[in-house]
């Protein structure tokens, strides 16, 4: 009897374990289904404007107002694309913007990560003041400083050195105009004051905070200097943060309109995209809004395409870094 009872209990336990396994499995399936539905819905909301761009930019202009067409046009055309490329003087603007984006981003990452590391790991005098200034750069609306900044670049005096030379030049300061020169976009990045640099520095600070100090201490014991530690130990271990910030910074430089329109309007892609409507009106003397709409949407597509491609390549670098850092747990 007793043995039978024991057996029964054992069976019950096994049953329970089986049940829990089954329910866990079905839970996982249920979650996967929910996740798929949710992600499809959100993706649709995000993709809607892109689909609209695609639909508009390959549609012939006489089909624009056709009520029988919602998404897929009856015939496809490349005319809108070609016109967008022409009106944006694409070759020139895209090379210029690509150079500014690449050089600006790399310089910004370099100088901002140095600053972020200095701010998060070292406790020197005046650090509090610098932190307050950092937050001020993040929250200051750029509209507030753009006009004085424009004047700085119009009469660029090489960090006041040109003005110090004034007595030797008969009282006239040595200045150069950097407006419409890519240097006006790149130079602030070199000094970690480019587009949203404050935010980049702050992001680096937060990521450095999350990093264990044991690595640096070990490097110090091995007789590694501060800068050598930084380039040999910290940088390689910060790859996820660097890739993330690289992506942000790249996008901010690529899509920037505000600074480009002020400092470098002639050869900037975003300014050119903004001016497509005016260019059409100037070129064809026609003000057909549908035409403008189609070419502008095509321009948007061309504008987004390069940066999206670069992102798809960079995405592979979003790898797990902790496994490689040698410190776990």
């Amino acid at each position: 009897m007793v043995r039978l009872k024991k057996r029964k209990i054992l069976f019950k336990k096994a049953d329970k374990r089986d049940l829990s396994r089954v329910s866990r499995r079905s839970k996982a399936v249920l979650w996967a289904v929910c996740r798929a539905i949710l992600m499809c819905g959100l993706s649709f909301v995000i993709l809607y404007p892109i689909l609209y761009m695609l639909s508009m930019s390959f549609r012939p202009i006489n089909q624009m107002a056709d009520p029988s067409i919602i998404w897929i046009p009856k015939s496809l055309t490349l005319e809108n694309m070609q016109r967008a490329i022409k009106y944006m003087s694409f070759k020139e603007t895209v090379t210029n913007t690509a150079i500014i984006t690449l050089v600006g981003t790399v310089l910004q990452i370099f100088s901002a990560s140095l600053a972020g590391y200095g701010m998060s790991r070292f406790k020197f005098k005046g650090r509090g003041v610098l932190f307050a200034l950092l937050i001020a750069t993040i929250i200051m609306p750029p509209q507030n400083i753009i006009i004085p900044l424009y004047r700085q670049f119009q009469n660029f005096d090489f960090f006041w050195i040109g003005r110090l030379l004034a007595p030797f030049r008969g009282g006239e300061a040595f200045t150069v105009s950097l407006i419409d020169n890519p240097i006006s976009m790149i130079l602030p990045a070199l000094f970690a004051n480019g587009i949203r640099s404050g935010l980049v520095i702050y992001i680096f600070m937060q990521f450095f905070k999350g990093m264990p100090e044991e690595l640096e201490e070990a490097a110090c014991v091995d007789g590694c200097g501060a800068f050598a530690t930084y380039f040999k130990i910290i940088m390689p271990n910060m790859m996820p943060a660097i890739v993330t910030v690289f992506v942000f910074s790249m996008v901010w430089y690529w899509t920037d309109f505000f600074y480009s329109a002020m400092l470098n309007p002639q050869t900037s892609l975003s300014v050119a995209l903004n001016g497509i409507g005016t260019q059409i009106a100037y070129d064809t003397k026609s003000t057909n809004p549908l035409e403008v709409q189609a070419v502008t949407q095509a321009g948007c597509l061309i504008f987004i395409a390069p940066i999206l491609t670069v992102y798809l390549f960079l995405q592979r670098l979003f790898v797990q870094s902790v496994e490689r850092s040698g410190i776990t747990g």
Binding site: S111, A115, R121, F124, F159, F191
Partner: peptide, 20 residues
């Protein structure tokens, strides 16, 4: 560490003075 930190933030501080 104290004064080494200043070298790390120096480029940014120069830029801050001139561009901000």
């Amino acid at each position: 560490k104290e004064y080494i930190g200043i070298w790390f933030v120096l480029p940014w501080v120069i830029g801050l003075a001139y561009f901000f």
